[in-house]
Design a protein around this nucleic acid. Structure first.
Length: 430
DNA sequence: CTAGGGTTATAC
DNA sequence: GTATAACCCTAG
């Protein structure tokens, strides 16, 4: 059986070739992989996903997610702020994911899809991004784009301007620039690096070689032992591991669960190193990764936006690439999504006693009126007040439902009527 | 869904 | 008791 580390090298090599997506998927499915995946391999998978989006070419929320995950990977690996090209690609893709609904408008669509997209992407996703640890992606360009999208909501002239702009080309170009930069920064695939080293060794060793496989095997082993690749090829073996496990691990071999990564980079991915099932499960889903399932915009629904019913609150999530190569739960994970069934004083959960008709014998109270328990009074926090103030400034008075959907976490204990009442109280004071 | 009137809880 | 904030009800 192949050592999972070797399969990582093979996978890296294949993923970075212009091989067909199906082949990459097949390989991903067939090869035993280490758990957790090395950060390098995770990044390669994400870059490949971007590359796949470019080649179709189809930019969607999946592209946006890939960029977010890359940022997260780099952040957990200790990198500084995201590169300009990454942030630029993110902004350009976010714009394209919104304006495409203007271009693709059908006759019976009066712009609702575009408004939905602005809410979903800019009011939920980008707003969450700004508040999160991933705020490095929140570039001035993204801020400006958000301003423009918000203006487009109320100003048809701006919408027409956006429709005429080739945001798709701009986004494709920006992603291409980022990909080239990332590829360059990553250096050649490890297998290529190794092959080059073997070649050099062969050339320099001169005479006395018989060219046998055994000899090549020995040479590789020595190279691995002496080179001790670190840093750039993180997650790949150093000299010691190569020695202890025999050449490339073919011998006694380290088990797939030997987790140097988890020790060396405890912040990264924090997945249970003993749980190989995750790898299997992830891989199964990842096998779908390069196949377009044709969802409306491929939105994986990773934001905490609850109010947006289309992709935030319980809408069926496309399996397309919803595999999270970082295998972590984080700000946008579903766990953080408000669950109306628990703890949340959803107005629909008001304690309505059974109807008067059923209760008239046992409980002839309230003159047969339906008895509704009043919610416990809860004072508004300054955060709630400030958020409401800014939201009204931005979206205007009367859009209570929309405002609540923009800040599902902050207003999780409030109904849209509460927002309206609170605003009435606030302006009374002025 | 929102606006506006009504009711209730709480602080003073 | 009064003022006010928070919450409820319901017509349109």
């Amino acid at each position: 059986m192949l050592d999972p580390r070797i399969t990582s090298w093979i996978l890296e090599f294949v993923l970075r070739q212009p091989a067909e997506d199906w082949m990459a998927n097949e390989l991903l499915f067939a090869l035993p992989l280490p758990s957790p995946l090395s950060p390098r391999l995770k990044k390669i998978l994400l870059l490949r996903r971007l590359s796949s989006d470019l080649s179709r070419p189809s930019l969607s929320a999946r592209t946006l997610l890939s960029l977010e995950l890359i940022e997260e990977l780099e952040r957990y690996a200790g990198a500084g702020a995201p590169s300009n090209s990454l942030a630029a690609a993110y902004a350009a893709v976010a714009v394209e994911c919104t304006t495409r609904f203007l271009r693709e408008r059908s006759d019976d669509d009066h712009g609702e899809d575009f408004f939905d997209a602005v809410n979903r992407i800019w009011n939920c996703r980008v707003a969450d991004l700004e508040r999160s640890e991933a705020a490095g992606l929140f570039s001035p360009a993204l801020r400006e784009a958000r301003r423009e999208m918000e203006e487009a909501i109320v100003n048809p002239v701006v919408r027409v301007g956006l429709t005429g702009r080739d945001t798709k080309k701009a986004a494709l170009d920006a992603v291409r620039v980022y990909l080239e930069e990332a590829e360059k920064e990553m250096g050649p695939p490890y297998l290529e690096h190794l092959a080059k080293a073997v070649c050099e060794e062969w050339m320099s060793s001169g005479t006395g070689r018989d060219g046998s496989v055994v000899e090549l095997y020995e040479m590789l082993r020595n190279l691995l032992a002496s080179q001790g690749e670190r840093g750039r090829y993180e997650g790949l073996p150093d000299g010691n591991t190569a020695k202890s496990s025999g050449l490339l691990g073919f011998g006694a071999g380290k088990g797939p669960n030997n987790d140097d990564d988890a020790i060396a980079r405890p912040n990264l991915m924090n997945q249970d190193p003993s749980d190989l099932e995750h790898v299997e499960e992830n891989r199964e889903r990842a096998s779908l990764s390069f196949v377009d399932k044709g969802t409306k915009d491929g939105n994986p629904g990773t934001t905490t936006c609850v109010g947006d019913k289309r992709d935030c609150a319980g809408a069926p999530k496309p399996s397309l690439m919803d595999w999270n190569p970082t295998a972590r739960t984080f700000e946008w994970d579903e766990d953080s999504i408000e669950s109306p069934s628990e703890n949340s004083p959803d107005p629909s959960n008001k304690l309505h006693l059974p109807s008067a008709k059923r209760r008239e014998i046992s409980l002839p109270l309230e003159d047969n009126k339906t008895f509704v328990k009043r919610r416990r009074k809860k004072k508004w926090s300054s955060l709630e007040e400030e958020t409401l103030r800014k939201a009204v400034e931005r979206h205007g008075v009367g859009n209570w439902k929309f405002i609540k959907s923009c800040h599902p976490e902050i207003f999780k204990d409030r109904t849209e009527v509460d927002l309206k009442d609170k605003w009435r109280n606030m302006i009374r004071c002025i």
